[in-house]
Structure formats: structure tokens, C-alpha cells
């Protein structure tokens, strides 16, 4: 028998193969393009607003560009305002309509930086992780190692609902339970709100990672005569540690980027504050505040904060990559 490819409808199958493969390439490109655009735009626009002061100073009021930030010692106003009579002195015609000159907002210059936001975001997210890690880890271990009981089913369901809940709802809950009770906005309230968002992520990744550990490994531990808790802690969890760390880091990255829960719990702060019991600033909140500002210069700062936030999240994701390959490669 000769090799007659036509007999097998080879041409037709090749067309189908190429068409479908083309579809997947196009779909992938469509999925990637927005990501590249977003990251690229933030990098270009936000990167240009960065300078040393951006990272080392806190909020300062914006000033007109040509004053160089100088202040008239007599009035305490920026030097450019010196010519304007602010004493409420006599006008030539009291009945004449006052027509204020249209201010040129583009001439207003932003000063200062977002150190308070960087510190706030790191503090709030780290404290949140500190709360979320033990709860999430233990819940995940319970779900994976004692899977078939009604309590586990309930916890799993709650985790899924919680991780799907709109984050503003978490914010409202945090506001009602913490801010209203304590009668003050605080970084701690924000950290607790972030905790609510992190726990389901950590619990479910921990569970999934532990489930990937082959049953044979658990049996090997049992066959040594190890009690279940011993096998879980010394054999099963270390085997899945890479995945668990990855889950915690991703939860951290997600927590760092959350805006809605913080909006209602930490309020924001224009000064550098390390006090978790007082209102605090955070990068997502600053982005929101600056983008709302009437001054283009402050809008520019918003791109800067977005840039720093993006760097933080990208950095954590890179760290995840390093951790995973390092541990796997070290075996």
C-alpha cells in the first residue's frame, strides 16, 4: 500500500488544525494586549513623575510653577500671590461684578511625595498578612486533611463566597464593626479589612497545594507510626511549602492593591504616620485622591503612585517566581 495522504483526508485535517491553532494565538494576543497596554502606559506616564522627593517626602500643597515654592514672608502666601490684594480693601466700584481671573491650573506645580502612602500600604498589608496567615494556613490544613465533614464543607463554601464578595462590602463591614465602634478611622481597621480578603485566598491555595501531595506520602508517614498531626506538620506541609508560600505572597499582592475596603476604614492621611490606631495613607487611596484633584500636576502624581503600586505587585509576583524555582531547583 502506498502512502496516499489524500486517502486520510490529510489536507482537510491540516486546515482544521491551522485554523484552530490560529484562533488560540489570536485569543492569547487579545488577552495579553490590554495587560501590555496598561503596564506600558503606567510605566511611561507614571515613571516620568518620579524623583527622589517622590519617595522621601510626604504631601505638600501645590504651588504655582514660577514661584519656585517661595513664600511671601508678609502674607504667608506663595510669592506669586503678592500682587493680589487679599486684605479685602476698597474696590473702585463695589457694584461692579467681580470677575476672578481664570486660574491657569497647568501652572500649578506639585511638590512633595508619597512616602506616607508607601509606608501606609506596607504597614497595613503586612499587619493584615500577619493576621491572615495563621488563620488561612490552619483553615487550609483543616480543609485538606479533614475534607469530608460538614464543617469543612461549610468553611469551604464561606471561603468561596468571601473571596467572591465585592471588596466594598468588606469595607462597609469594617467601617461598621471597627471604625464606628472605635469612633476613629485607623490603619488597624484597614488591616483587619484586608485580612478578610486574604484569608480565603490563603486557605484555598493552602488546601489545593496540600491536596497535590500524593496520598502515598501521607501513608508513608503513617506507616512509620506517625500520628496524623506529626505527619501533617513534618511531612505533608513541608512538601507543599512552595505552593503555600506562593499563595501567601499572592494574597499579599492582592491586599496591597485593594482600594475599596481602605476607603472606608483608614480614611487617608497627608502626613507620615506609623500609628496603626490613627488614620493612615495608602497608595491606592492616594491614587484615587490625586486623580480627582483639579491640578494636572497632582493627576500626574496619581500616575506615580499607580506606578509604585504596580511595581510592588510585579515585584511580589517576581519573588513568587524566584521562591518557586529556588526551592524546586534546590532539591
Amino acid at each position: 500500500m502506498t502512502l496516499q495522504t489524500n486517502m486520510l483526508n490529510y489536507g482537510g485535517r491540516r486546515v482544521v488544525d491551522r485554523t484552530l491553532r490560529g484562533c488560540t494565538v489570536v485569543a492569547t494576543a487579545i488577552a495579553i494586549i490590554p495587560l501590555v497596554l496598561i503596564i506600558g502606559y503606567v510605566l511611561v506616564v507614571g515613571g516620568s513623575s518620579l524623583n527622589v522627593a517622590f519617595f522621601t517626602q510626604t504631601y505638600m500643597p501645590p504651588v504655582p510653577a514660577d514661584s519656585g515654592g517661595a513664600v511671601d514672608p508678609a502674607t504667608g502666601l506663595p510669592a506669586d500671590f503678592a500682587g493680589i490684594d487679599v486684605s479685602g480693601g476698597t474696590l473702585a466700584d463695589p457694584n461692579a461684578p467681580v470677575v476672578p481671573a481664570e486660574p491657569d491650573l497647568t501652572q500649578i506645580q506639585a511638590q512633595g511625595g508619597v512616602l506616607h502612602g508607601i509606608v501606609g500600604t506596607l504597614l497595613i498589608t503586612l499587619v493584615g498578612l500577619l493576621f491572615a496567615l495563621p488563620i488561612g494556613l490552619m483553615a487550609g490544613i483543616f480543609l485538606a486533611e479533614y475534607p469530608s465533614n460538614s464543617l469543612a464543607t461549610g468553611i469551604r463554601f464561606c471561603c468561596d463566597v468571601l473571596s467572591g464578595a465585592p471588596s466594598i462590602v468588606i469595607g462597609v463591614v469594617g467601617y461598621t464593626l471597627l471604625v464606628q465602634q472605635a469612633r476613629t478611622y485607623s490603619g488597624l481597621a484597614g488591616a483587619v479589612a484586608i485580612t478578610f480578603l486574604m484569608v480565603p485566598t490563603i486557605a484555598r491555595t493552602t488546601e489545593e497545594m496540600l491536596k497535590l501531595v500524593p496520598h502515598a506520602v501521607r501513608e508513608a508517614a503513617m506507616a512509620m507510626g506517625a500520628p496524623k498531626w506529626y505527619g501533617t506538620l513534618t511531612v505533608v506541609v513541608p512538601t507543599a511549602l512552595t505552593g503555600i508560600v506562593t499563595g501567601a505572597l499572592l494574597a499579599f499582592a492582592r491586599g496591597a492593591g485593594e482600594t475599596a475596603p481602605l476607603l472606608l476604614t483608614i480614611q487617608g492621611n497627608s502626613n507620615l504616620s506609623y500609628d496603626l490606631l490613627a488614620p493612615m495613607a495608602a497608595l491606592p487611596l492616594l491614587t484615587y485622591k490625586y486623580i480627582e484633584s483639579p491640578f494636572p500636576a497632582e493627576n500626574q502624581l496619581a500616575w506615580g503612585t499607580a506606578f509604585v503600586l504596580l511595581l510592588l505587585v510585579l515585584g511580589v509576583n517576581l519573588l513568587v517566581r524566584v521562591v518557586t524555582t529556588r526551592i524546586k531547583g534546590g532539591v
Binding site: P214, A216, V217, E219, A220, A221, M222, A223, M224, G225, V235, P238, T239, L241, V331
Partner: peptide, 18 residues
């Protein structure tokens, strides 16, 4: 019981990360 009656399985189990 399992300490007194040991067991070796089909798949060799070297405990990972150990």
C-alpha cells in the same frame, strides 16, 4: 501498631524536602 508492624509501599517514598 504501625510502629510495630512496618510497611513498605509500591512507589518508593523518599520524603521530599528531607
Amino acid at each position: 501498631v504501625r510502629r510495630k508492624i512496618g510497611m513498605v509501599f509500591q512507589m518508593p517514598i523518599a520524603l521530599r524536602t528531607r
